[in-house]
């Protein structure tokens, strides 16, 4: 492994594959996506296979996750929002487990790539647009016209609302991407300090204690961030879906 903090994000093909001039290789990123899917689906399938009236421990975990997401979606988008429950649940679990997988040393974090988070954010954005217009027709445009705003400033407010609406996928995706990227770089940099300091002899080893403590702290923080960013991504998805379902309650 190279020692610079960027090489951990390198995409490396495992099974080269080229279709129609496009490089569609099965890469380390694809491997961890598939691992995430297999682990999560396998775990949940195992956990829910008992279907016990009194849940086992594993089943409790699956049910807590289910009710956590369902509660979040219901609070944010009302009971109509539950139509999108599979989507929000899948997004949350996929990102959460992907982030947590990235916490293993030498593992690849597919959420640290802007294209992945952008694709997920655009998926949500598209669903919001389609649902919004399909359910409300042109009333969906009321989203951009907040009620109770004086007519004089209304054009500006509408302009701001439109801009903020269309920049949503950017903030939605960059938030997750940048958090994962920055966290992993920070971790790598501090861990690198330990190695380079401890090669300087006794004083260096003593000095390396500080970055070691930092690394441990940042590792704990990164676990929190992994959960939090998955939560935030799912939460924002819920709020955007709420706009699609209830554009006039703004």
């Amino acid at each position: 492994m190279a020692n610079d903090p960027i090489s951990q994000f390198k995409i490396q093909p495992i099974i080269p594959l080229e279709i129609g001039g496009l490089d569609l290789s099965f890469t380390n990123s694809a491997l961890f996506m598939m691992l995430t899917v297999a682990t999560t689906a396998g775990f949940l399938a195992l956990a829910t296979s008992g279907r016990g009236l009194v849940p086992s421990r594993l089943q409790s975990i699956a049910e807590i996750a289910y009710e956590f997401i369902a509660g979040m979606l219901r609070d944010a988008a009302g009971s109509q929002g539950l139509r999108f429950f599979p989507l929000v649940f899948s997004l949350f679990m996929f990102i959460l487990i992907g982030n947590l997988f990235g916490m293993f040393p030498y593992f690849f974090t597919f959420t640290s790539h802007i294209i992945v988070t952008a694709a997920l954010a655009l998926l949500v954005f598209t669903i919001v647009l389609v649902t919004g217009f399909a359910r409300n027709g042109l009333r969906f445009l009321k989203l951009f016209v907040p009620s109770g705003v004086p007519a004089a400033v209304l054009p500006f407010v509408v302009l701001i609302e439109v801009i903020s609406f269309f920049t949503r996928p950017i903030s939605h995706s960059v938030r997750l991407f940048a958090n994962m990227l920055a966290g992993h770089i920070t971790l790598k940099v501090f861990a690198g300090f330990i190695v380079s300091l401890s090669s300087l002899g006794a004083i260096g080893i003593a000095g390396a204690i500080l970055p070691l403590v930092m690394t441990i702290g940042i590792t704990a923080l990164e676990f929190l961030v992994s959960f939090l960013q998955a939560y935030v991504f799912a939460m924002l998805t819920c709020m955007y879906l709420n706009d699609a379902l209830h554009p006039d309650e703004h």
Binding site: I11, P13, L17, L22, D23, L24, S25, F26, T27, S29, A30, M33, M34, T36, V37, T40, A41, S90, M93, F94, F110, H113, I115, V116, A119, L120
Partner: peptide
Amino acid sequence: TFASQLVWLAIAFGLF
């Protein structure tokens, strides 16, 4: 790497 990531994301997330 975008094409590969997008395709595999679609496969993985679709399957999920």
